[in-house]
Amino acid sequence: MLIDFKQQGAHLIEGSFSDYQSLVHAVKQVDVVLCTISGTDSNNLLLQLKLIDAIKEAGNIKRFLPSEFGMDPSRMGHALEPGRDAFDKKMLVRKAVEDDGIPITYVSTNCFAGYFVGNLSQLKGSFIPPRDKVCLYGDGSVKGTTNCK
Results as ranks from 00 to 15, higher is better:
residue 3 I to A: 10
residue 58 A to V: 06
residue 123 L to K: 03
residue 71 M to G: 08
residue 51 L to W: 10
residue 123 L to A: 09
residue 8 Q to P: 01
residue 28 K to H: 11
residue 38 S to G: 13
residue 98 E to F: 03
residue 73 P to H: 07
residue 141 S to F: 04
residue 73 P to M: 06
residue 55 I to R: 06
residue 22 S to D: 00
residue 73 P to D: 08
residue 87 F to A: 08
residue 135 C to I: 14
residue 27 V to S: 12
residue 102 I to L: 05
residue 141 S to W: 01
residue 125 G to L: 01
residue 111 C to L: 11
residue 22 S to Q: 03
residue 135 C to F: 14
residue 77 G to F: 05
residue 38 S to F: 06
residue 108 S to A: 10
residue 127 F to S: 04
residue 142 V to D: 05
residue 97 V to Q: 04
residue 19 D to R: 02
residue 1 M to D: 09
residue 75 R to E: 14
residue 7 Q to P: 00
residue 34 L to S: 10
residue 80 L to F: 10
residue 99 D to Y: 00
residue 105 T to V: 12
residue 129 P to C: 00
residue 131 R to S: 10
residue 95 K to R: 13
residue 83 G to P: 00
residue 134 V to A: 02
residue 50 K to N: 15
residue 103 P to S: 00
residue 11 H to R: 11
residue 125 G to T: 02
residue 44 N to F: 11
residue 25 H to S: 15
residue 17 F to R: 04
residue 99 D to V: 02
residue 101 G to D: 04
residue 145 T to Q: 08
residue 3 I to D: 11
residue 148 C to E: 14
residue 10 A to Y: 05
residue 52 I to Y: 02
residue 119 N to P: 04
residue 39 G to L: 08
residue 72 D to E: 12
residue 148 C to N: 13
residue 69 F to H: 09
residue 65 L to D: 06
residue 4 D to M: 05
residue 137 Y to A: 06
residue 79 A to S: 14
residue 50 K to E: 14
residue 51 L to C: 12
residue 93 V to G: 06
residue 46 L to T: 13
residue 78 H to L: 08
residue 63 R to A: 01
residue 9 G to Y: 01
residue 97 V to H: 05
residue 102 I to H: 03
residue 48 Q to P: 11
residue 59 G to R: 05
residue 112 F to M: 12
residue 49 L to V: 07
residue 129 P to R: 00
residue 43 N to M: 09
residue 80 L to H: 12
residue 141 S to M: 04
residue 93 V to K: 02
residue 23 L to N: 04
residue 148 C to T: 14
residue 53 D to S: 11
residue 7 Q to E: 15
residue 57 E to V: 12
residue 88 D to Q: 14
residue 8 Q to F: 04
residue 92 L to A: 12
residue 56 K to E: 11
residue 37 I to N: 13
residue 17 F to Y: 15
residue 77 G to L: 09
residue 29 Q to K: 15
residue 78 H to Q: 07
residue 49 L to E: 14
residue 88 D to C: 10
residue 80 L to M: 12
residue 63 R to G: 00
residue 34 L to R: 09
residue 107 V to A: 13
residue 63 R to T: 01
residue 19 D to H: 02
residue 133 K to G: 00
residue 139 D to R: 07
residue 48 Q to A: 13
residue 15 G to V: 03
residue 116 F to L: 14
residue 81 E to F: 04
residue 67 S to H: 07
residue 121 S to H: 10
residue 108 S to Y: 14
residue 134 V to R: 02
residue 69 F to N: 10
residue 116 F to H: 04
residue 18 S to E: 12
residue 59 G to P: 06
residue 13 I to A: 08
residue 138 G to M: 05
residue 61 I to E: 10
residue 117 V to H: 12
residue 33 V to F: 11
residue 11 H to C: 04
residue 38 S to M: 07
residue 28 K to F: 07
residue 92 L to P: 00
residue 4 D to V: 10
residue 90 K to A: 08
residue 4 D to Q: 10
residue 101 G to N: 06
residue 73 P to Y: 06
residue 39 G to N: 14
residue 91 M to T: 06
residue 25 H to N: 15
residue 135 C to N: 13
residue 8 Q to Y: 04
residue 139 D to W: 01
residue 123 L to I: 07
residue 83 G to Q: 13
residue 128 I to Q: 03
